[in-house]
């Protein structure tokens, strides 16, 4: 690791951290119900959600499994299920 003077560090290096290791539950998206409204994306603390082709896609590399997206989805399109290790 490079030591910059003054303990000043480069931007955005947190992206290497696989915080997905933290989780017990993972949100599974019901693509029929999801209309891509994006509210889950705005409520996600970990920037795991992207709206692609008007559907919600969850990034398992970062998702800590907090469950906010599932709780807040107005169409109940997300459900928390154990694991989700495969979703990366």
């Amino acid at each position: 690791m490079k030591l910059n003077i003054g303990c000043i560090t480069e931007a955005g290096l947190s992206k290497k951290n696989r915080t997905g290791y933290w989780r017990y539950f993972f949100p599974i998206v019901d693509k029929e119900k999801c209309n891509g409204c994006g509210i889950c994306e705005l409520f996600c603390p970990d920037s795991c959600i992207q709206i692609k082709d008007k559907k919600c896609v969850v990034n398992g590399y970062y998702c800590k499994g907090c469950g906010i997206c599932a709780r807040e989805c107005p169409r109940a399109a997300l459900t928390m299920q154990p694991g989700g290790e495969e979703a990366e």
């Binding site: 690791m1 003054g6 560090t9 931007a11 955005g12």
Partner: peptide
Amino acid sequence: PVYKTDPQNPLTYGSLTDDDK
């Protein structure tokens, strides 16, 4: 200056640092 707070070259000042460094 060697470093400065420049949006073109964003840097983090005052990092939390562990005993390894």
